[in-house]
Nucleic acid binder design. Sequence first.
DNA 1: ACCTAAACGAGACGGTACGTCATGTCTTTTT
DNA 2: AAAAAGACATGACGTACCGTCTCGTTTAGGT
Lengths: 203, 203, 203, 203
Amino acid sequence: MGEAKTPDASRRSERSRQAILKAVVEQVGEVGYTRLTIEAVAARAGVGKQTIYRWWPTKGALVLDAFLALLGEPAALPDTGDVARDLKVVMRATLVELVNPRFELPSRALTAETQMDPALAKQFVDALMRPNLEATKARLRVAQRAGQVAEGVDLDVAVELLFGPVYHRWLLRTAPLTERYADTVVDYVLAALRPPGPPGSAG
Amino acid sequence: MGEAKTPDASRRSERSRQAILKAVVEQVGEVGYTRLTIEAVAARAGVGKQTIYRWWPTKGALVLDAFLALLGEPAALPDTGDVARDLKVVMRATLVELVNPRFELPSRALTAETQMDPALAKQFVDALMRPNLEATKARLRVAQRAGQVAEGVDLDVAVELLFGPVYHRWLLRTAPLTERYADTVVDYVLAALRPPGPPGSAG
Amino acid sequence: MGEAKTPDASRRSERSRQAILKAVVEQVGEVGYTRLTIEAVAARAGVGKQTIYRWWPTKGALVLDAFLALLGEPAALPDTGDVARDLKVVMRATLVELVNPRFELPSRALTAETQMDPALAKQFVDALMRPNLEATKARLRVAQRAGQVAEGVDLDVAVELLFGPVYHRWLLRTAPLTERYADTVVDYVLAALRPPGPPGSAG
Amino acid sequence: MGEAKTPDASRRSERSRQAILKAVVEQVGEVGYTRLTIEAVAARAGVGKQTIYRWWPTKGALVLDAFLALLGEPAALPDTGDVARDLKVVMRATLVELVNPRFELPSRALTAETQMDPALAKQFVDALMRPNLEATKARLRVAQRAGQVAEGVDLDVAVELLFGPVYHRWLLRTAPLTERYADTVVDYVLAALRPPGPPGSAG
DNA sequence: ACCTAAACGAGACGGTACGTCATGTCTTTTT
DNA sequence: AAAAAGACATGACGTACCGTCTCGTTTAGGT
């Protein structure tokens, strides 16, 4: 029929795939995303250009894949019973990653690219952001059940209250991203989410 | 001698400048930022390429200029005495602009571009974001003096608590940007910033 | 050991061979020799590319084979006793073939290709030209024995005198190839070859 | 209108043109016509590919131009009063050129290419063959007026009788191209063209 | 009838070149 | 002196084929 002919993944060369992803990571590190070319990646990976075009639709998808391969499993979110402490752990971890020179460039590149390419955006968010956000949400749900967060709070909003300010500062570079900043944000947000206490319960 | 030859701005053709900025806006609207080319802009504006290269250093700077010309003066922030109501006005205005199809594409494009180009980023933030942020900060300062915001609050952080979540949702497209959302964010943030009340003042 | 592994012709698939030659003929007819690709031939014939590379060394050889399969046996040269008439029959037949649209394209393609590939040239001449030339030479030998052609004439040269002009016109397209032209050439050449007659025999 | 935009020849870089033609000649000499690539020519000439594509429509046209630049003016045909001698001079000259290693490769390449490209063929014939053929025809006309060639002879045909056999042998490589062969052809052809003499005038 | 080695279809692969597009620089001509 | 026009060297694009190389899958002989 009219279907586009899809390559046969079972015949795919794992060797080439690895070489390509490695080349992408190196190349992004050296010349940045904008000046990264498929041609250079192919050359560095010792691979035909077609092999790249066969398996990745765009430069963005390629870099996303390379970045995913670079990242390990996301650190699990702890539950010590102390919401503030636990949330500060995630926020600091997020922040450390955003600031890590190894990840910063590709992160910015992908963030930029996703602004222009919604399909890539979905992949990007699902693969890299969602897990973190969901884990945080889960932790907040526990806190909510424990009465540390008000019952009526929409946890999706809560998560955005936490991450939003950090990304805002990272994106706009309006001020340095410090762990102190992350902690402050957590404290403010938890204050906002706290259930209305009985008289005298507010610290 | 070794000085870079700077063009003489007094001889600049206003006619060409206007035509170029107009062409850029149209072009971005039609093919998006990525596929916008200097060549096409020059052709559409009936202008030599050199005229563009003479006055703008990069594509990003060109689009930024075009975008600035497109925007009017930012709406002034009201002071009705009701902080919540006033902040909701700004936040809603911000949001409406982010969602306006006429501005969304260039905004995303510039946001993307600034990730890769810190010099452009500074211009972008100073020209487009800072005024809004500063106005908001000023309003919060008034509130702080009026005792509606706790004394110890760092107002720069406060501003980020407000705008961060909105931009987060806009950038990641995790959920629709509604005025209700803006209002909710304002309410939460003000709750967090509220000064510790006397027993019984909460709720 | 170092022997090149030769394919076992006894196991060759006649079905594939036919399909390939058919595909070649069709393909040459549709897109011409230059734009004929092994890939397209394989696809059209429903055959793996390797099957073509296994049995034919070059595109030229492949097309030559396809062309040979297309051609029937060469018409035998008559001997009516009248040299002029007999030669005109061959020359006209040659000409008809050169002008036949079914054969013209591949003929030109092969003629072209042989200019660049002497090995193919030999095959081409031996298979397609030589028989005709030899038959003509044989007829001239008979004529020579019959005293219609001078004794000293080198018959190889005689044959070239006949065919040369016709091919010249075909190759250079300097004028249309008509049967009248073929006849004229035969007449002139026979005049040149005629033995020196006794006084009064000329005319 | 719908006209294709033609480059402005007055701005053409003579420097680049020369470098390109030189590179083509060298490249053809080294790797032959088939393996000559635009890319390699551009690289060797220190020129952008586009500069080649801007001024020449096909590889064939490019090589033809290069070949024309290589050739000097064609030697003028002498008129000593002795037709046979004069014609032998042209034929030998033709032959020498065909056999000259410097010219043979490009000549064969162009002859081949013209088989597939009638437009190029016209240029090729007009520029390289026609002058020679016309000169020969002119000489024959003189001979005809002098009564050395029969009145009724179509001189275009006569020219083909002369050149056809030589090209035939060159193209098919059926036998070595010698000056003796050229002379023989001239003698036969003149014999064929001779006017019917009075008794005793032959020999 | 079974076994085994080949030829086979399919198609991924490393390459090379294609012809096009846009870059930023340069030069020529016009205003 | 700036501007319109556009040729230029450069370099990447994405595509088309090349000829080689696996992959299973037929398909013939040889047993």
